[in-house]
Amino acid sequence: MISRKASPGRRRVPWGVYLVLLPTFVVLAVFAYYPALSGMLHSFYEWRPGFSSPFVGLENFVTMLGDDVWWESFRNVGIIFIWATTLMWAFPLLAAELVMSLSSERLRFVFRTLLILPLAFPAVVNVLLWQFMYDPRDGVINSFLRAVGLDGLAHNWIGDPDTALAALMTVGFPWVASLPFLVFLSALQNVPAEIYQAAAVDGAGRLRRFWSIDLPMMLRDVKLLLVLAVIAVLQYGLQAHIMTKGGPDNATQVPVLRMLDAAFLDTSWGYAAALGTVLFVLTLGVSVGALLIGKRGGKGATA
């Protein structure tokens, strides 16, 4: 044992470890690496599972360039992204600032728990409940409008192409039970008390403190949230599939739904694989890009 410690370089190879890793890598090879590679490879084929699949080169990608529904889905994703990183951050940010403005630890705990409680419900229940909120006849929103005499405003919110996308994005309002809230809150909790005390001595008001201390302190976390938002938005699909199926008139079409339709409705498996590959490359590009920018920013800061 002592000699082993003395010369770690000449330690004998512990062959047992490969035996331990073997089952894990067998499972990953079959159910993770193989499907990922098979998807990318079949992007270049007219994929007919169970039959011979001819190689078609870039044809699937050319089809994609002319696929209006696909591009429309990206316009929607862009709108969803803007909404997700402005309004859907503003409320969590406000809530985090408010929670930290409370004077007692106990009050903070109570409100934090109440605010994140919706996270304890399955996502599908949240979406189904909001589908009910929008119900044209019995839903909460139209019932409320009728109750206060605004019958004229009652509306088929998810059935009208003009309001469907906005209605989908409003699901979960005010979005405080979310990762951004948890991130903002823990960032604020990590601001050292001395900084606030110094700011108060200098006579900085609440707003000034927000701009000069809180926001800069949160900047690093905001970068991470931004990357996660891009990745999440590219995979957006649950709300759209349950509430609108991408309709009406493709007003809520998103890439994931287009990919699933290509596969399961049109049975164009190769085309669906190509769309999946594009989504993968986009996600990878965003992640790697963020990593590089983050590294450069970090170097600049330390230099």
Binding site: P35, H42, M259, A263, T283
Partner: peptide, 29 residues
């Protein structure tokens, strides 16, 4: 052990593959 970092890198690389992009090929499998 030899190959430790390579094998771990192979595992970590899978974190970059969102589950939705493997959905179609996994279904066929």
């Amino acid at each position: 052990f030899p190959g430790r970092n390579v094998l771990f890198g192979l595992v970590a690389a899978l974190l970059m593959v969102p589950s939705i992009t493997s959905l179609i090929p996994l279904f066929i499998l």
